[in-house]
Each structure stands twice: as C-alpha cells, then as structure tokens.
Design a protein around this nucleic acid. Structure first.
Lengths: 339, 339
DNA sequence: TTGAAAGCGTTACCAA
DNA sequence: TTGGTAACGCTTTCAA
C-alpha cells in the first residue's frame, strides 16, 4: 500500500518475519547462511513492506561503497564512451558501480571532481590521462585505493596504467603517409595544453616528420578541445589556403578529420587524389565516410576492459599493495583511401 | 606524511584543532556559523592530517545523498550525451551529483538498474522514455522521490515529464517531404519494441503517410537498437532494391541517415536529386555531412536542462508533493538538401 | 543457522 | 558561536 510515512528498515522486516535484523541482513546477501525457508519468509516480508536495502548505511558499516570513480574528459566522445562501455561491461556482476564525472578537458575541473569523489569513498579510481594538478596528484596518491591512469603512458604514473604512447601512435600515420609517397604533410589540432593527448600526437607527428627531413611547418591550430567537425573543417580551409600543395593531412581525431573531409568535398577537392586525410580513434564515422578515413585504432574499448580488470585484480588481492600494473596497448593503423 | 594506517575522522581533526567534532562538521559547510579564525584553524588541521570528509557517513546521518539517479539507453549516443550534458551543467553547484546508468535499450536492464540505484537513496530519478516493466513502475512510484521521464510524452506518467511526442515529430518530416513534392516515401528503422521512441517515430510517419493517401508500405526494418551507420547503409540498400522509385527516405536517427547517405554515395545515387534523406536528432553529423541531412531537432540538451530544473524545483519545494510538472518540448524540422 | 551488542563517521537537535 | 548526545540503518564480531 502507498501511504507509509516512513521507509521501512531491516528491523521492520525482521519483526514481520519473526527473526532478528541480522538474519534479514544475511538474507539479502547471495552467499549468506540462512535457512532456505527463513530466507523466503524474509523476502516475502520485505516485499510486503516495500523494503529496499539502504546501501548508504551498509556502506558506512562495511566500509565498502562498491563505487569505482571514473573521470573522462568529455561525454560526447565516442572513444571515451567506448572505454566506459568496456569498463562497465567488465564490471557488471562484480558488485562494483561506476561513479562517472567528466572534466571537460580541464585539470582544474578534474581536481574538483576527484575531491568530490574521494568523499564518496570509492574503492578504486580510474582517470583519463597522466597529467594532473599537483594537488590532484597528491589527493590520488593519498587516496588509499588503486588509481588507474588511462589513454596515456605517464612518465611518473601515480599507480597503475592502461594506455599507450600518443606520440608513437601518431608516428604510425607519418610512416603510412610516407609509404604512400607523400612528402608534404600537415597536422591539424593538438595545439592546446588542455588536451595533452592531442599535444602528444602533434609532437609525435612533428618528431617523425623532422626525423625524415620533411617540412615540419604545416601545422594548423584548432583551439581548445573538444575539437569537433566544425574546427576540422575550418582548419582544413586554412591548411589549403596556406599550403595549397599539401599532400596529406593528419587530424588530431577522426571527428576533425571528417570535418576536414567535408570541407574538401564542398570545395571540390578530391580525397585522396588531391589530398589524403588521416584521423585518430577508429570511429565508426571514419569507416563509413565516403571516402573512408585512414585512422589509428587505440582500442578504446579494450582500454576500458583492461582498466576494469586491473581494478578487479587489485581489489581481489588486497595484499598486493606495492604492485604496479602497467598494461600497454599497441595502436594500429587502419589504412584506407587506397588510391 | 604517508604511512597513516587509518584514515582520519572528524574527531581526529577536532582534537588537533581543539574543538568539538560538531564544530569541524560545521567548518566543512559553506553557510555554517563558525568563527572565521576557528574555521581556518580547523581547515589547517584537516589539511595537515589529509582529512577528507566521509560523505558515506554524512549521507546516513542527514538522509541526503546528493545523488540524482539517471538512466539513459546508451552512452554512445550523441543525443543522450547532450541531455546528460545539459543536466550536469545545470546541476553543477547545486550539490547534486549524477549517478549514471545505461539500460542498453532494455526495460529489464532498466529495472535492474533502478533497483540498484534505489538502494543508494537518490534524491531524484530521471529516466529515459515512458515505457517500463510493471515492477520498475512500482519501484519508481514507491521510491518516495521525484521521478522525471524524458524523451517521451507518456500517456500515464509516473511523475514528471520533460519530453515530446516522437510520433508528432516524425510527421514534421512527412510534411516536409510532401512540401518538397515527394510522394513515394520510405522509412528506415523503428521496427523493434526495444526502442519505443523509434517505434513511435515510425508510427507517426505511417499515420502521416496514410492520412495523405500515400503508399505506406515502404518500411525497412533495421533490427534491435542501437541503430548505427552500418544498419542505415544496409537498410538503404534494401530500400533501393525493393522500391527503386522511392523519392525520399526518413531514418529513425541521424546516425542511420548518414549510413544511408554513404550507401547512396558508394552506389553513385545522387542525394537529394535521386533520393532525399531525412534523419532525426540534429546531430552535428547531419549538419556537416555533404550533402547535409534534413533532420528534426528535439533539443536534446534542453531536455537535460529542463529535467535538472524540474528536479531542482521539486527538491527546493518539498511541500509540493502532489504537483506534476510536464515540460513539453516542440521539435522543429531543420530543412536541408534544398535542391 | 541464528542472535545480541557494538560500532561505522557523520549530522540533527537541543542547550549553553 | 560552540558543544554534548542521540540517532541514522546497516554490518562486524563474537556467542550460542
């Protein structure tokens, strides 16, 4: 019946089922030792009262919240969404839930978020990237729970890592372009310190281009993240205006690469005949676009499953407090635009 | 120093700062009445000990968790991501945090999720859609907190609503097509009961087509959600094969519309000269694609901000327990492909 | 398999 | 502005 003026507690259930509240508590656990008949009676009583376990109290008592705090830069990003999907798929059934926050590509926002999350006493923390404010680092280091940094290979990791070198990954694209015979290469995006992964890709591109003695000046800034199709298109416009003889362009992500592609299409520039375009992230979009866009697959979803595995492994081996787990992903190029 | 073997509590801070734990508690609230100097001393002490407030205990004591439980069908969907963004932007600074779960377009999964979430004692619940299992409805009705259904206009809402009629929205596209002079119209997707919003769009399309006496047989099923570019492309292939003289096709979402577009491009079919394509959702993708895709804007982000406003309004007026707030969004067509 | 008692770390409430 | 005390609803621990 509706109209109860108070949410029932275990004690209410216990009284109705003629047991102690302790037995009710046990009845709500899978493995607990409760008489079959007793349990049924209890669950029936609970149902009758509309009782719902209060994990807020359970958390306090058991000092376990079942939370894994996760921060990602942006929710509107297929790559991070994939990582998240991988993580929550792997976490399903483990009793762990994700407490999600997004930083909007800001380390200050990340600090604020982590500080908030820490109050909730998560059992593990998964963050994106290896760059944080000093205070945030300190908070994470002293959190007392496993910390996993993802999507990067930090020089001085806080705890555990599931990631790859964005600089190395970008070099794959330069290799690919050079193999195709392109020598005048440009890069779009990755110009702001807010997106350290983008910055690393740009750096990797530059290093590879310089190592081959090619022109390393063809860089277009796209401004602060998130870099969308719009910025990709605008940057391509600028690229063509400034260096009309550019043969191939790498974009910081598939989203901007698609924007760049559409800009070419509007201008009647043929891709890849007049100019080839590469992106990053292996978005569906890159596969389906006509022409398809060459890209680099960093296994976004696998990053999530590995991060989850790391957490699960660490939490089930509470002894291993001085272990550092590093899972290194190997990005692969997906060559398209085969003229 | 690292090496504390126990996380400090308020009492530890209190002792160090020479106050009662009650005063420490106050010092951690914005508005509380604490002497300026006292507060500083307390915060300094807290910092020294590396104290972090335990909201797990605070939640239990105050019976407030600061959680808003939110369920969306999929995380990899720009529309729901936008709604989420709108919601969290509006919630920022309110002291409310989002507890996010995704249902994978399954009402059973939704039920499981809601049941889990209810244990965490959220202060409000925001769900996507108006279709739920019976048990889930019951759980929500008895939750004792505001419930907001979004992205739909349920006939019998559980509590509050921020949404629109998907069927009405789809009719806008039929109107648009007919105005353009198209009479042989097709629809792609929306064929599965798992995506009730898609189903509604398809229904709206059919009703509008029939009302005008047009051929209402040109329907292609895309299978269970999420409907991606791939399904859009495959469906378009089938549409063309079965009804080669189709003049315009509406797709259940912009994602599948883009897939359909690329299929045409690969086949050398001109869009919109040979066949026009419309989508749903006002994705960036629809705007940037070449040619751009006609779409329907349901103000995904505004749904989020309104849902947040609804929650905030309800929580700040605890008296208004018998109020029902319904915010009706008016979808608008964004006409493109102007030949 | 079941129960009793003692917290878990905070805030509500009342008093000073 | 500050402090004391009693919850908050559960689980841990120990006993039966």
């Amino acid at each position: 019946m509706a109209g109860n003026n108070k949410t029932p507690t275990m004690l209410d259930v216990a009284r109705l089922a003629n047991v102690s509240s302790m037995t009710v508590s046990r009845a709500f656990k899978r493995d607990a030792s409760v008489g079959k008949e007793t349990r049924e009676r209890i669950l029936k009583a609970a149902d009758e009262l509309g009782y719902v376990l209060d994990s807020t109290a359970a958390n306090l008592s058991s000092r376990k919240t079942g939370f894994v705090a996760v921060t990602i830069p942006s929710i509107n990003n297929a790559n991070f969404a994939d990582t998240l999907r991988g993580m929550s798929q792997r976490l399903r059934g483990s009793g762990l839930e994700i407490l999600l926050g997004y930083t909007d590509y800001s380390v200050d926002e990340e600090e604020r978020l982590i500080e908030q999350f820490l109050r909730r006493r998560p059992e593990a923390i998964v963050v994106t990237g290896g760059t944080h404010t000093d205070r945030c680092r300190k908070l994470l280091e002293h959190s007392g729970v496993p910390v996993v940094e993802t999507w990067d290979l930090p020089a001085k990791p806080i705890g555990h890592v599931v990631g790859f070198s964005n600089a190395e990954a970008a070099k794959l694209m330069v290799d690919h372009f050079v193999e195709r015979g392109y020598t005048r290469l440009g890069f779009i995006g990755g110009d702001t310190s807010r997106d350290t992964r983008g910055l690393d890709r740009r750096r990797g591109f530059l290093e590879a281009v310089k190592a081959r003695g090619l022109d390393s000046s063809r860089l277009i800034a796209s401004g602060p993240p998130p870099i969308t199709m719009r910025e990709g298109a605008a940057s391509m416009r600028e690229m063509i205006a400034r260096w009309p003889d550019t043969q191939a362009v790498m974009c910081v992500s598939d989203l901007s690469a698609f924007g760049a592609l559409t800009e070419c299409q509007r201008k009647g520039i043929r891709v890849p005949e007049d100019i080839a375009i590469g992106g990053f992230g292996a978005y569906d979009l890159a596969e389906h676009a006509v022409p398809a866009i060459t890209t680099i697959d960093a296994s976004a979803k696998a990053i999530g499953t590995h991060a989850a595995d790391t957490v699960l492994s660490l939490l089930s081996n509470p002894e291993s407090t001085d272990v550092r787990m590093v899972t290194r992903i190997t990005p692969k190029i997906i060559a398209r635009q085969t003229t």
